[in-house]
Design a protein around this nucleic acid. Structure first.
Lengths: 301, 301
DNA sequence: TGAAAATTATGAATTTGTCTCACGTTCGAA
DNA sequence: TTCGAACGTGAGACAAATTCATAATTTTCA
């Protein structure tokens, strides 16, 4: 069959108008055109859609079945049109975020909460552990924003700086390292290192410290949740290097000792990678503004 | 916008085929036609549906939204086509039954149970109390079968006889009438009559007895459910005239006395009114066969 | 890096389908 | 029966979709 939305619209109009002539007027076409259309549809379907006996043309049983479909489908089409219109006007959009930085949940969630209420027509989502590389996925439009601390030069992609943070060493006061003024790469050689389950290339402690110094920790244990990681640190089952906004939340608790990484401490900058085309979207600008201010509140908390 | 199903099919095909050329082949059209079609759609929508940067043409965010719609809508269209095909082959259909005879639930339900398993593709339904007249509704194709005991001569409608039944008087043994060998119209003058909530013209007790004799019962109480009506009879709150297959179910119970209506007893014939066009449908024939045999089992039970 | 291969875009001609116009037909009511 | 309203039909006009041929890409692979 060659059913088209045009036919569904006609069926609905004929039902609502209670006749072919009035329906034709509703749809800005001649009564003849509608008659032809319906006839063609019936020929294709091989089913009588209208009770032809009496004059104000009424739907047959099969026609009523078709009407039900029309009443289900057409509103969805209209909804999509409304969405596209909002999209053109910059009110709607999609913001699917890929995080390379696993601890970013902490500040991302409050951000998205604020954002959602301001831009209800933007479809938000977070994808934590991507099975694939995040930046290619950004180019492929599978995601719309990537949180990363390693800007790359990619055509069509821009890296917007968000804020600076410091990777901080954290361990139990019972750990011997707790006595030191700061930690160095060599200090990890006899430690169990707790990390998020990600590639080493995406973990500050490796890219900034251990890999350049060619130091390998005694053991590595991968942990998904920040809260669990802190528990393990508190019970001296391992040490970790975490962003300052995470460490700040346990400051002053007697179970934890925090130290700078290297004598000067490390500083890293977080970026939002987005497609060039999206950089001008008003909602994207709003989100970036939030992503620059929210985390700072956490860091100062 | 001028979105059509054709476009949804194309979107889906391009997604599934992973490219425009392969999709075009899948849809038995040239690659050029698809390219033109997509371009037209994007112009209309004012939204980029595909990521044009890289060659094996992929869906953009908006395109993915459209794909979701396609995946929701197209299966429904296919389902309808399957239904229409079954309809043409006489496997599917609609059997919406209107009852003028309210007590017919008793035998109609078992009938429909059997029928449903034999003709799963026929959409069955019962409408008990129609707000309108049942026969005009049959002509208008709002229902497909009317249970009635008053055949009329209507163009396009045929009355198929189902079976005969006897309207039987039923009362409590404590009721004075319980002593009589049969009841007459005059006996109702000082009785509370229990009836289904229908027009008098559709109730045997009036059409066959009281109206011709110009007798009015002391009171009329309308009851929806047969079981409730029997309860009221048992507690001598009223008397009733019910079809024999209903009365048969309480035969032998000490709470009830049943008597013939008039000396000879009444006999009525039940008909199924259907549209002429449906008379040749195989499933309709099957249903009528069931409707002739099932009730007789109840009457003999 | 450069050429070949694969993939998509474009433009004009053609085909297909849809609509309009004018008139015929049917149905229901007076 | 006749009238009027509502629907059907057919030919031509028009619009839209498709095709063919070819250009402009990007991707792949040597």
């Amino acid at each position: 069959m060659h059913l088209e939305l045009r036919h569904l619209r006609s069926i609905r109009a004929i039902h609502e108008a209670g006749g072919l002539a009035r329906a034709a007027e509703m749809m800005n076409m001649t009564q003849s055109a509608l008659s032809h259309q319906i006839k063609g549809l019936e020929d294709q379907a091989g089913v009588e859609l209208f009770a032809r006996r009496s004059k104000p043309l009424r739907l047959s049983a099969a026609g009523q079945r078709l009407l039900r479909l029309a009443q289900k489908v057409l509103p969805e089409i209209d909804a999509l049109n409304a969405e596209f219109r909002a999209l053109r006007e910059g009110k709607a959009g999609r913001l699917h975020i890929a995080m390379e930085c696993h601890a970013c949940f902490e500040w991302l969630m409050p951000c998205l909460e604020h954002f959602r209420s301001a831009w209800p027509q933007v479809d938000v989502d977070i994808r934590a552990r991507l099975a694939f590389e995040a930046l290619p996925a950004l180019v492929r439009e599978e995601v719309d924003l990537v949180i990363s601390s390693d800007p790359e030069d990619l055509p069509g992609v821009v890296f917007q700086p968000l804020f600076d943070y410091a990777p901080v060493f954290i361990c139990s006061p019972r750990n011997p390292l707790a006595q030191k003024p700061y930690v160095m790469a060599e200090d990890f050689a006899d430690q169990t290192l707790l990390t998020y389950p990600m590639d080493r290339a995406r973990l500050d402690v490796f890219t900034e410290l251990l890999t350049p110094a060619r130091v390998e920790p005694l053991a590595i244990r991968q942990v998904e949740l920040t809260a669990i990681m802190l528990m393990l640190v508190a019970s001296n089952r391992g040490v970790a290097v975490l962003p300052d906004w995470v460490v700040r939340s346990v400051r002053g608790q007697p179970d934890f000792v925090t130290l700078p990484v290297t004598e000067q401490g490390l500083t890293r900058r977080l970026y939002a990678a987005i497609r060039e085309e999206d950089a001008t979207q008003p909602w994207m600008a709003h989100f970036l503004r939030l992503a620059r201010t929210e985390p700072v509140k956490l860091q100062r908390a």
